[in-house]
Write a protein that binds this DNA or RNA. Structure first.
Lengths: 333, 333
DNA sequence: TCAAAAGTGTTATCCTTACACCCATGT
DNA sequence: ACATGGGTGTAAGGATAACACTTTTGA
């Protein structure tokens, strides 16, 4: 009944700095070479069933230890346990045990320069360059991704070929379809399945007992790979955050206590990866009553001074979140 | 590094039968008495890191084994690992190891009578009687729950007292506030914290090393308790499903291949626990284009025959989910 | 004076909500 | 004929998306 299982915790700590979405990454020591790992990973650590009462406490403890940084908002994402996928800690030696990793999302308003060595804030678009549509549709989708997916789809047999093609089209908005910014994970998994994410080649090699081939010539369009399955966890986190922003006021976990409406808009845009309509964004804000003007102004904006606002945290509780449809009725019928 | 950890999988398998939401429950053998356990639980089993490639495969295997029932739609819910809470398997002997349980939600259109012994479909409202608002606001909220929560709030000190009161008011819609049907987990956790869920007393006893006191006289208004933390997992599942219905067409995992619009509405109502507006429900359906009339009719309805419809699964893929706000813009500004 | 960023007004369109009403079947 | 459940039409109000325009600062 007692098995060789190790529980690992991984943290996706996100912030917005200078209008760019960033994530906290580490380069752990590689046991083989004794130097910092070539690939970046997420802060992660083993869960000690003796010492820790809850996952969340364990997570906060080791993130602080590794990065000298205190987490604020935290939420559980998903638990990963597939055997095929390269598992966390495999690179730093879990002694052959099966590793289950519980992923967490943490948000912080303060992209503090972390003092810890081998720790850095990196832009999300390094790992998902196709996810930033703020300057319009990224060229690399049509130039590199679409052709590669087309080849992959054509390599499929019968039904499968058509299925691959439809999925590519829908997820990457290929034939004039609408871009759905929430489906970050689906897109990453598609690229992984198609063998276009560098991690796919690595995991395949490892499954066959081969030495890792350098993920040599994959185009930068497919994003920088990460250690083990960390890029998959990161994709889960970004997708979750993008979706959640729409029905819970989580953006405010990423802003300073006071902010201008433009700053707030830039923060939302940085995460969602799309441009928003200024006037309508503002109208939406005062309809929902989520923010409150302070009558004070920020003079540093390089134009007309902007009023400072704050998030009205107090009335966060019940807010019925909007969701959609389910047309309610009072009585009868 | 290798610790005494056991991974358990728990399945919340839901269906709608005769217009009532039901869940698959089991009464495992109690090792002490050798008879079926007094309390119901969810189907659960250990995850074997040697034998199983993924959680999902393991889950499908043991659910079939325990209940002779094949799962259709499956999604991961949450991973529970708190020490304070009574953990799964504790009742059937995990030998003192720390148990981490990964909860899954399964949906099925066929509430097949399961042949397996000690397995049954039970109404969700047995466990959460306050969650069914289809006949209007349940009496037991004002008669039993509200007064009990009031006492609990008054027992709090200072700030805490006010906080408890606000939370009770918001979650149970006490002072004319709006009912938010999605917050099933928050409500259960509130009752647990307030010591009103029978499980709370049991876990407290166990933490203090006492023999379990019979959860004697808790009013039925607080729902029937389940084994270990299964009612918490069930609450997570119901909340998730209620929320998800609003942005993904998951209801159709609960319906037969063809259905009348009234049947579909009753299914949604059974899960959401609220009454819907017939005409507007129908208008919403053809706006979204989710269903398609078949030109065939069901004559068994006891009135004018109803047209049969089917879910248009094919165009499920991209559908941008509605969510809300994020006012997009094409170019500039 | 002009660029840059903040902030306001107005309109067409669509969705939601609410109302009242007609249709086809079994008893 | 009438009860029962299935199904339709229409209109008011609010939210969204798209226009264009004014205001206040620094260089």
């Amino acid at each position: 009944m007692t098995q060789l299982v190790v529980i690992g915790l991984s943290a996706v700590v996100m912030a917005v700095r200078d209008g760019e979405a960033v994530v906290l990454t580490v380069r752990p020591m590689d046991l083989a070479t004794g130097t910092a790992s070539r690939l970046a990973g997420l802060p992660f650590g083993p869960f000690d069933p003796e010492g820790h009462r809850t996952f969340e406490l364990a997570l906060r403890a080791f993130v602080t230890e590794q990065t000298r940084f205190d987490l604020g908002y935290v939420e559980q994402l998903y638990t990963f346990g597939d055997k095929g996928r390269d598992a966390p800690l495999a690179d730093v030696g879990a002694g052959g045990a099966r590793v289950i990793s519980v992923g967490y999302l943490g948000l912080t308003p303060l992209p503090v320069e972390t003092a810890a060595p081998d720790t850095a804030w990196s832009s999300l678009w390094r790992y998902f360059p196709w996810e930033d549509w703020r300057q319009g549709r990224p060229d690399l989708i049509d130039k590199t991704i679409a052709p590669a997916l087309k080849l992959w789809a054509e390599a499929g047999r019968g039904e499968d070929s058509e299925f691959r093609q439809n999925r590519s089209r829908d997820l990457f908005a290929l034939d004039g379809g609408a871009w759905n910014e929430d489906r970050v994970l689906d897109r990453y998994e598609l690229l992984y399945e198609a063998g276009l994410a560098a991690e796919a080649a690595r995991d395949r090699d490892r499954a066959w007992g081969l030495a890792a081939t350098e993920p040599a010539s994959l185009a930068p369009a497919f994003g920088e790979p990460m250690l083990s399955d960390h890029r998959r966890i990161l994709a889960t986190a970004l997708g979750r955050l993008r979706g959640k922003m729409k029905y819970r006021p989580v953006v405010f976990e990423l802003t300073a206590p006071t902010f201008t409406l433009s700053e707030l808009q830039r923060t939302v845009e940085a995460v969602a990866g799309v441009k928003l309509h200024k006037q309508n964004f503002r109208r939406m804000l005062d309809r929902t009553g989520l923010v409150e003007g302070l009558g004070r102004f920020d003079v540093e904006t390089g134009g007309r001074p902007a009023e400072l606002f704050r998030f009205r945290r107090e009335q966060l509780q019940n807010r019925s979140a909007l969701g959609l449809s389910l047309p309610l009725i009072r009585e009868g019928n």
